[in-house]
Design a protein around this nucleic acid. Structure first.
Lengths: 236, 236
DNA sequence: AATTGATTGAAACGCCTGTTTGAAACGGTG
DNA sequence: CACCGTTTCAAACAGGCGTTTCAATCAATT
């Protein structure tokens, strides 16, 4: 009874397309529990659809999963588009903006985005959906980073070395998404709230990278907001 | 028939303790397939034990899992112990050694160690076994890194900032373990074989960290083996 | 050799899974 | 209104899951 009311609400909020509702519910469930642990029944219940609907629209649990991954990734790209810069923007600021954007995508301050959790599962244990995800979503982002690093490096580093540095940069962000719980256990709570926020981390990774490139000073204690772009949302 | 022969072989190779055999088979299976997808039946088959054995020795699939995680981690610690240095060893070399050790643990050149895969699952999605894993295994390693960084930083950085940098350092290694497949898709194959080997990566992360600390030069193309300790196993 | 407690074995138990079924309800078209 | 392809539904299906059962076996003690 109560179930039916919330079904109707969900139906009206999301739209009347049952296929869409299934994709959404499936994404959430797969992200939360993983492929094996998520059940078709729970997904259909959450989507307000019958158990046979998944078979009707997707034929299969596996194909529902693949479609839900693609769906989530398309949705996420629309949510956090890549930053654009006016020509002549200094590469230091580009790097800082890029890192803010990346951390926003990964950590998704506001609400923890299930889409990212779902994509993370693909990264950690690639299935059929992964290759597509890399080409459409990760590669452009990664190439953009490489181009920014190239601007900063001048002719001191070639593309292979730039790519390796780019992996280092992404790794520093990625660890907070993938191993956030462990980081939370290793670092005191009050430190997490002050030094490991989105803005602070963007500044920090930016500083490390610039120093590695010889395009900025080494780390010091007085690294408040050494880049102009950092002064947007200071919450603490 | 053939099954029974291999059972006997496994029994003799590993030792006659069925509990041990179960822990080993369980670790391998859980690491490969994940908790939900791994079945008690397969584990018992691989261990050459009866289906009732897991209930007899551990009572439960969940408790078997927890015990197998602990077992794997204890085993892994014995396999790759932390490096020890003579007093007076320069911190630059300590850092390089530490990174080689860390990457060895994580990437486990030689054979891909299922123990690490199993622990990785705990890191990404902590269960009951995680807290213990962090305190016994990760925290000492992490603290050691922080102490090395402290030596290198002198008084330029305080502990909170050192910890943040330590997360950056670990992140650069971690990304290769957790997202290795995606890295492999983003970086050309010949580059992987030359610039992303264990030794090369240890040199690279070391160089980035030293530059960030102001304890070393910025990255350049001629970074062969800028630290003396790097000249052990040059394979390419 | 008999007894006892610990261990192993084959079989079965519910339960929950993904999937299928066939009929009912729907919604536009003649 | 009758028609018909599309979509929904409740119910059931076979199969695999973790777990339990209880008798058979083993190893050591009496």
């Amino acid at each position: 009874m109560i179930q039916q009311v919330s079904e109707k609400q969900a139906r009206e909020a999301v739209g009347d397309d049952p296929r869409e509702r299934l994709l959404l519910a499936a994404g959430r469930e797969f992200a939360e529990r993983g492929y094996e642990a998520a059940t078709v029944r729970d997904i259909c219940l959450a989507a307000g659809a019958n158990g046979a609907a998944v078979n009707y629209y997707f034929g299969d649990k596996r194909r529902l999963y693949i479609e839900s991954v693609k769906h989530a990734h398309e949705q996420r790209v629309r949510q956090v588009p890549e930053p654009k810069w006016a020509p002549g923007t200094p590469p230091q600021q580009k790097l800082r903006d890029f890192l803010g954007n990346t951390l926003e995508r990964m950590l998704g301050f506001g609400q923890p985005p299930w889409q990212v959790r779902l994509m993370l599962r693909e990264v950690l244990q690639p299935t059929e959906a992964c290759r597509e995800l890399v080409e459409d979503y990760f590669r452009p982002h990664f190439d953009l980073l490489v181009s920014i690093l190239a601007e900063l490096a001048g002719s001191r580093l070639d593309e292979p070395h730039l790519r390796r540095l780019a992996v280092s940069v992404m790794g520093q962000c990625f660890v907070y998404r993938a191993a956030g719980d462990v980081v939370g256990m290793l670092v005191p709570e009050e430190e997490l709230a002050t030094l490991h926020t989105l803005d602070e981390l963007a500044d920090h990774v930016s500083a490390v990278t610039l120093a590695a490139l010889g395009a900025g000073p080494a780390l010091t204690l007085s690294t408040g907001s050494h880049t102009a772009a950092a002064s947007e949302s200071r919450s603490l």
